[in-house]
């Protein structure tokens, strides 16, 4: 049984790595892109969707009880992979 907090920590670490990758990507876009409407619009849409997902999941996480523990291989998933026994 593993605490949900551990998964949250892993999620935060992955999100931090993601943030670094986004920063590098944006720097490349700003440095080498042509100043055009399509450049601004696509970058804005990218950031908007990304922010929406991060904020949405963060709002969901505020209502989560992180002290709950879970099985790493949940029993309920076995029928999904192996069919009904």
């Amino acid at each position: 049984m593993v605490s949900l907090t551990l998964f949250l920590i892993v999620w935060i670490v992955l999100l931090a790595i993601y943030g670094i990758l986004v920063l590098v990507t944006l720097i490349q876009m700003l440095r080498h892109g042509l100043p055009s409407t399509s450049a601004y619009v696509t970058t804005f849409v990218f950031l908007l969707v990304m922010a929406g997902v991060v904020i949405g999941t963060s709002i969901y996480f505020t209502g989560v009880d992180w002290s709950v523990t879970v099985n790493v291989v949940p029993e309920g998933l076995l029928p999904f992979f192996f069919g009904e026994s």
């Binding site: 998964f7 892993v10 999620w11 969901y60 709950v68 879970v70 949940p74 309920g76």
Partner: peptide, 10 residues
């Protein structure tokens, strides 16, 4: 089941 929906969202 408590926890699995959160795991899925993560």
């Amino acid at each position: 089941t408590p926890g699995y929906a959160t795991l899925y969202v993560l």
